[in-house]
């Protein structure tokens, strides 16, 4: 009967596990959200664990929307304390939060992230772009003589003779990425407006929403490829396609300068300086959101938040800036807000 005994005791152990675990609590900070903020959050978490007596926070990725969704699931130890986001929280998300009882939310801006356009280091001379060119290269339909026609441009030289006569092959972030929205608004829509196409489309559709939609529609005939994975996937595609141009985060580019060559946008070279002054047009703020109700309940949460925005970390000479974050000129105001636990 020894097997019976074994089986019974195993079942007893599993039953005991369930009882023990139902009284679980945790003593570490739990973070989820944007994969763009992930490297910064893990750098801070690592330094926090080294220098403080608290456990190292656990940082998950999964995207801004997924992170905020989990953030808004409610208050309690089995919910996350901090959501990282590469865009501001939406009103609909705040409503979802409020419905689940998450009312006091602290918004913390950690700095800015630049979005750069890069191609294979030994590839064609893609060194200078404008938003107009990107719009004309990637729009689904272009206005020609008072009618919308499918984008006829096959090569970059068709778009602008100053560009190399290479087939258009763009690798842009997929729709689940926060980067896609910035790309659509700051590059495609801006290009649509500055090239005068917006007025022409307005004349055709005479409807504002339809015009915006037509401006931001990206062609689907294979010249533009959505990348749903991370920048590593974009890099692999660029490696395989000498005439490909990819959209990357500044930090990713700065860690791969031996493989990629970056292009200027509107004549401005992307760098932490040009982005912090606002000269470089394609950048966005990075945030994290903190549940105020968890401060004082989860050990180390307040300390971690303060440490994240401290000059040692997020300052212009700190490790985050070294990795590629454009530090926030108004960091001091953020530090005060965090110290006062100011909510939205």
């Amino acid at each position: 009967m020894s097997f019976m005994k074994l089986a019974t005791s195993a079942l007893a152990i599993s039953a005991a596990t369930v009882t023990i675990a139902s009284a679980q609590s945790r003593d570490n900070v739990q973070v989820a959200g944007s994969s763009t903020v992930l490297p910064y959050a893990s750098i801070v978490a690592e330094a926090f664990g080294e220098n403080f007596d608290f456990p190292t926070p656990v940082v998950e990725s999964g995207g801004s929307s997924a992170g905020l969704k989990r953030f808004c699931e409610g208050v309690g130890e089995n919910t996350v304390d901090i959501a990282n986001a590469s865009r501001p929280i939406k009103d609909s998300e705040r409503e979802a939060c409020a419905a689940a009882g998450v009312t006091d939310i602290m918004e913390v801006r950690i700095g800015y992230d630049g979005i750069v356009f890069a191609s294979q280091f030994d590839g064609p001379e893609f060194t200078a772009f404008t938003q107009d060119q990107w719009y004309k290269a990637l729009a689904a339909e272009l206005p020609v003589d008072g009618a919308m026609v499918a984008n006829p441009n096959k090569t970059w030289a068709d778009v602008d003779p100053s560009l190399p006569a290479e087939d258009i092959m763009a690798f842009i972030p997929g729709t689940k990425h926060g980067t896609r929205e910035v790309f659509e608004v700051n590059v495609i829509e801006a290009g649509c407006e500055s090239s005068g196409a917006m007025e022409e489309i307005m004349a055709i559709t005479s409807d504002e929403d339809a015009t915006t939609e037509a401006c931001m529609a990206i062609r689907t005939d294979g010249a533009s490829v959505d990348i749903d994975g991370d920048y590593t996937e974009t890099l692999a595609r660029i490696d395989a396609n000498p005439n490909g141009v990819g959209v990357f985060g500044l930090a990713f580019y700065e860690n791969n300068t031996d493989k990629l060559k970056v292009a200027t946008m509107g004549g401005v070279e992307p760098s932490t300086e040009t982005i912090s002054t606002g000269e470089y047009p394609v950048s966005r703020p990075l945030f994290f959101y903190v549940k105020k109700a968890h401060i004082g309940v989860i050990p180390g949460l307040k300390e971690f938040t303060e440490f994240f925005v401290s000059d040692d970390m997020a300052g212009p000479d700190g490790p985050l800036a070294e990795y590629g974050l454009v530090s926030d000129p108004e960091l001091a105001a953020t530090q005060t807000a965090v110290a006062d636990e100011a909510t939205m």
């Binding site: 596990t17 023990i20 570490n28 978490a45 190292t56």
Partner: peptide, 18 residues
């Protein structure tokens, strides 16, 4: 799928078994 630096303990009074 997370960044975890601290070794997990098999049993601790705060978090229970595993």
């Amino acid at each position: 799928v997370a960044f975890v630096r601290d070794y997990p303990e098999a049993y601790s009074s705060a978090t229970g078994l595993f």
